[in-house]
């Protein structure tokens, strides 16, 4: 059996807010298997973003260990952690976070440039394929500001997937979209998950969005209070 893509053991995260300590996460254990389409649910302030940040290697836990693709994030240097994010993790943000001065094509191409493994012809082919599959083939030369929110998030999905990472993280990817557009983004992510076997972990408040997940992890007050298979989850 292959090792899980994510393995969190007894994770705690404490934020220091002046003199007070905020226990954002406590005693969190979580295993995410490869190919899952996992939703993290919970009320505001329950620690969803914090957990995704720890899994994404943009932050490290105060206690416990987080392993991503076998790597203990607390033991990596800043440089290696950045490399882990580049090669193993794709990010989709609530606010899209595209680089405003770059075109759609350039935004999607960017991780490939950072990886520096492909020739420009290979990159072009890869980016075009991705834009095709998110339905934006005709928008390669547009700038983010010329796109709708849904289109921007599609670009972000393409950017997250372009380097072929085994894991994609999305913190409330639909929160800034209307529910119909949000639905199409989740559908798109689900399609990519099915097609390539890429693991997706996303957080959301929206029960409709949750219903697409293969499993739901519920957080409350910094703890995991349950894990369930969602109604919409199909056996894999």
């Amino acid at each position: 059996m292959p090792e899980p893509i994510v393995e969190a053991v007894d994770v705690a995260k404490v934020y220091q807010l002046g003199k007070t300590e905020v226990q954002a996460l406590r005693h969190v254990d979580l295993v995410v298997e490869r190919g899952e389409f996992l939703s993290i649910a919970g009320p505001s302030g329950s620690g969803k973003t914090t957990l995704l940040n720890l899994i994404g290697g943009v932050d490290v836990p105060t206690a416990g260990t987080v392993r991503v693709d076998g790597e203990d994030t607390s033991r990596l240097t800043e440089r290696a952690l950045t490399r882990l994010r580049l090669d193993h993790i794709g990010f989709i943000f609530q606010t899209f976070n595209l680089v405003a001065v770059l075109t759609v094509f350039q935004n999607v191409e960017f991780p490939l440039l950072l990886q520096g493994r492909m020739t420009s012809a290979e990159r072009r082919r890869r980016v075009e394929t991705l834009l095709e599959s998110v339905g934006l083939a005709g928008h390669a030369r547009h700038r983010p500001s010329e796109l709708s929110g849904g289109q921007r998030q599609r670009v972000a999905v393409a950017r997250a997937l372009v380097g072929n990472p085994p894991l994609v993280l999305a913190d409330e990817p639909t929160a800034n979209l209307d529910s119909k557009t949000g639905g199409t983004i989740i559908d798109l992510m689900r399609e990519m998950n099915r097609r390539d076997g890429t693991t997706f972990i996303f957080s959301t408040h929206d029960p409709k969005v949750m219903s697409h997940a293969s499993a739901i992890v519920r957080l409350e007050d910094g703890r995991v209070i349950g894990r369930e298979s969602a109604q919409g989850a199909e056996a894999r």
Binding site: R79, T82, R83, R85, G90, F110, L114
Partner: peptide
């Protein structure tokens, strides 16, 4: 935010 994003998606310091 833009710099943070670039750092998150794998740009080195």
């Amino acid at each position: 935010r833009e710099i943070g994003t670039l750092r998150a998606i794998g740009m080195q310091r």
